[in-house]
Design a protein around this nucleic acid. Structure first.
Lengths: 163, 163
DNA sequence: CAGAAATCGTTTCAACACAGAACAATTTAT
DNA sequence: ATAAATTGTTCTGTGTTGAAACGATTTCTG
């Protein structure tokens, strides 16, 4: 196709392209950022939130197991857990059966913070979807889930934009 | 395995939450990454692509103007333009009216690369949307555009994940 | 016109995030 | 008993990022 085809008066490249890929990338970034900001009063980041949810789902898992499930390298997990432990939201307990592993457990404070974070997440979701109704939201989620991104992605937590 | 006996009742936090915010963030990240990979043969990143599109849309704009429009700090723009100029895709020309400003122009090679990048973008979009039909795609774009993210976002290029 | 202030592009700098490699302690396999 | 694998950790190198300081130039102001 030629280049000057539909070049009427509108710059054609000025406006955001009407593309799923572009919109997803853009919205994804700013959405992450906004959620991060919303979480900031709690002193935790999105990744902390994810990790805590996983720990809450099943106490006592090893760091290794969690790291694998979250798709982050073990070295990264150390820093993550360090932070959470320093804030007393999480604690490492020695495993009675294997002295190499440290099981992760939420503290009481950790559960409390996680609960607040959950509320924040819901509020955020509500606000994000303020422009569409419930049915449209279901539709949107359905469509998003049918997008062809690498098969093995979901479940992990993407890097970038910490704290 | 040890404890996956009564795992029928959905761990509740194990599965990816059915949330627009979460899906958008996750898909956005991996989508960016994939597009970046697709662009890699050309030796440019998504941000280069965006910048080039803007330059193409109106030749001769100052770096300052572009930087503001893209929402990136001037210091970053320098590196960005440096890279493109070194690859001979872009060139800085002195402004006859103001010796401070350097207008940005695409080279012939730049236009060629931009065109290829555009094709890659279209291919990528096609592949991304392979799981939904044309009508659904329109619907998806419509819904995405109605999401409530900060009003002033779009048009800018988010940082992160360079080259 | 002279001097102050703003603008443009650039360089420098410090802060971080990130992941790969090497490591010690421990457990499991041969 | 020795070798190999696992777990968590530290170390280190690489890269991105934006704030700040800087010259050069232009515009504003009196």
């Amino acid at each position: 196709m030629k280049e000057d085809e539909l070049r009427m008066e509108e710059p054609e490249a000025e406006r955001a392209p009407r593309s799923v890929g572009f919109l997803i990338s853009q919205l994804g970034f700013f959405s992450s950022k906004r959620f991060m900001d919303a979480l900031e009063p709690l002193g935790i980041g999105p990744r902390d939130f994810s990790l805590m949810r996983f720990v809450d789902a099943s106490d006592g898992q090893s760091q290794h197991a969690l790291a694998e499930r979250l798709g982050i390298p073990p070295s990264r997990m150390v820093a993550l857990v360090d932070g959470l432990e320093e804030m007393e939201l999480l604690e490492r307990r020695p495993d009675p059966d294997d002295r190499r592993v440290r099981g992760l457990f939420l503290t009481r404070k950790g559960r409390s913070v996680l609960e607040k974070a959950g509320k924040i997440a819901i509020d955020y979701e509500t606000q994000l979807c303020a422009g569409i109704n419930r049915e449209e939201r279901e539709q949107l989620i359905d469509l998003l889930q049918r997008l062809q991104v690498t098969q093995t992605d979901l479940g992990g937590v993407h890097p970038g934009m910490s704290e």
